[in-house]
Nucleic acid binder design. Sequence first.
DNA 1: ACAATATATATGATCATCCATATATTTCCG
DNA 2: CGGAAATATATGGATGATCATATATATTGT
Lengths: 125, 125
Amino acid sequence: MIIHIFPPMEPDPDTFFAALAHPLRLRALLLLQGEGELCVCELTHALDVSQPMISRHLAQLRQAGVVSDRRRGQWVYYRLHEHLPDWARQVLAATLSGVAGQVPYADDSAALANMPNRPATACCA
Amino acid sequence: MIIHIFPPMEPDPDTFFAALAHPLRLRALLLLQGEGELCVCELTHALDVSQPMISRHLAQLRQAGVVSDRRRGQWVYYRLHEHLPDWARQVLAATLSGVAGQVPYADDSAALANMPNRPATACCA
DNA sequence: ACAATATATATGATCATCCATATATTTCCG
DNA sequence: CGGAAATATATGGATGATCATATATATTGT
């Protein structure tokens, strides 16, 4: 009898690239790659989409094993998954360094930086 | 008046990752990354799919600007597009080095190596 | 004519989005 | 303290769009 507590499954290449293949998900992942950790409301603001919409795509990324989440009071923070294989991290790093200055990625970072009432992460995590 | 002869358009990140997001296209691209140049019949054999199917996916990759083709007599050879940006090449290189030993990618390379009557590319290109 | 490759069409499957709603957590106030 | 309101996040269902495959047909080169 095999008990699956929780396989820390890392995504296979198909799953990983399917996760990157949506414009909104790619924008979110490149933000996470640059910022480390962001909550849903920050992503909603930076990407300028409805909260249910980003929540759905984050759920897809979570199910794909690309991101992990942690609850901190009323906020849920997302980050790149700890078990993401090295080649996948290299893919994201190469992409970010290649396109960081272009639209819409640069604007996303700017919108995040300009967000008012941003929940503090650095001070009390 | 703007004349578009043929913009050597390089794929934007969305287009590029959408191209990688299909299992068959990813397998084909990783083969091309490793082999340099392959004709349709070689890809058909290595990936074990019907010719119309691989042809259709190659057409998508061509339209996306990820591969280019050249006709050589009765064969059409595909390769990674010359104008593919550097970050995109890094993405493919990182992926290949990360997954080359796994299924189905290792089997694809083996099937290609075992292909009989393979049209010569090195000698007469 | 034959072999290699490409495209057109049809069909079943999957996906993205929207709206409404559900759950969880904190704050405010009596 | 206790309960309602507010904020943050997640999900279910419906719908329209897109995609993958198969079959058939066309085109190109020897």
